[in-house]
């Protein structure tokens, strides 16, 4: 009972704070009279600040305020994407090609009757058959269409953009043109343009790729020389993962800076 009393006290405090914040923010700073737009704006800024804090509260533990923000977010965002999809794809793309009457109803310019657009319409309706227990199997036709088409497209897309160029980029000169000992040993520091570094770099890339690929062999036991190469492969992978992680830290902090600036500046007005 004590617990629920506390919950009530916190709830009342939060609601009060919300109202106070709303009221304070409603007053325009320049001494103008209070107006409907400023009240509206104050409400939404306060709301944004409260949902921001509600999400941050999750870091402490799961709580009713996080649950509220989460459930609200799910409902609103699901509807948002549905509306966007409906207006832009269904009304924007399909309707103008199949029905002049519906185009007029939705207020979009009618393009021309295109017979082929009945195919997705029919497949879409078949997909909705899932809701019936008897005709549910019909929905597989639509799934088969989508999965088949995109499997083919994806296969090609990946080969084209990444795979073949990555293979050919592995061919690097492992020997450099000899320009004399002086030129070769001129600069030992890594990431320089010196000849020694260039050669070292090319060797590391080649051996790294090679061992990495060995690690991904599935049908051979990783033993002996093969196993050693595969171990080197996983080392290279781990070094890379560590480096990527370290590199990302910087960018992630700026996201938090953005959110805190919103709270301190836009909402509380703490920064002049």
């Amino acid at each position: 009972m004590n617990g629920s009393r506390w919950t009530m006290i916190v709830l009342i405090a939060v609601v009060t704070l919300f109202l106070v914040s709303w009221a304070i923010k409603s007053f325009p700073s320049s001494g103008d009279t209070i107006s409907w737009p400023s009240i509206r704006h104050a409400f939404f800024v306060t709301l944004a600040a409260f949902v921001t804090l509600a999400i941050f509260s999750f870091l402490y533990k799961d709580n009713p305020y996080y649950k509220f923000a989460e459930h609200l977010f799910v409902g609103v965002s699901a509807a948002y994407w549905m509306c966007v999809g409906f207006w832009s794809t269904f009304v924007g793309n399909l309707i103008p090609r199949i029905s002049p009457g519906l185009s007029k109803f939705f207020g979009v310019p009618y393009k021309e009757f295109t017979f082929y657009y009945f195919v997705p319409l029919i497949l879409g309706i078949l997909l909705l058959m899932r809701l019936s227990s008897k005709a549910g199997w019909l929905s597989r036709w639509a799934l088969a269409f989508i999965v088949g088409t995109t499997a083919g497209l994806n296969l090609i897309r990946y080969l084209r953009s990444d795979f073949i160029s990555q293979v050919s980029n592995t061919f690097v000169p492992l020997l450099v043109q000899w320009k004399g000992t002086g030129a070769f040993f001129s600069d030992f520091s890594l990431a320089s343009g010196g000849q020694f570094t260039l050669m070292l770099t090319n060797w590391v890339i080649f051996i790294g790729t090679f061992c990495g690929l060995i690690y991904f062999f599935f049908s051979k036991e990783h033993k002996g020389v093969f196993g050693a190469a595969s171990r080197v492969g996983i080392w290279v992978l781990m070094i890379t993962f560590g480096a990527s992680f370290g590199y990302t830290v910087m960018g992630r902090v700026s996201l938090l800076v953005g959110r805190l600036t919103f709270l301190f500046d836009d909402w509380l007005g703490l920064m002049n």
Binding site: Y60, L256, T261, F264, M271
Partner: peptide, 19 residues
């Protein structure tokens, strides 16, 4: 972990607040 969160929060908000 919450202690770490508090420190991160401080480390980011203090420089913003006090420039």
């Amino acid at each position: 972990r919450r202690i770490i969160f508090v420190f991160i929060g401080l480390a980011v908000s203090v420089p913003i607040l006090f420039s």
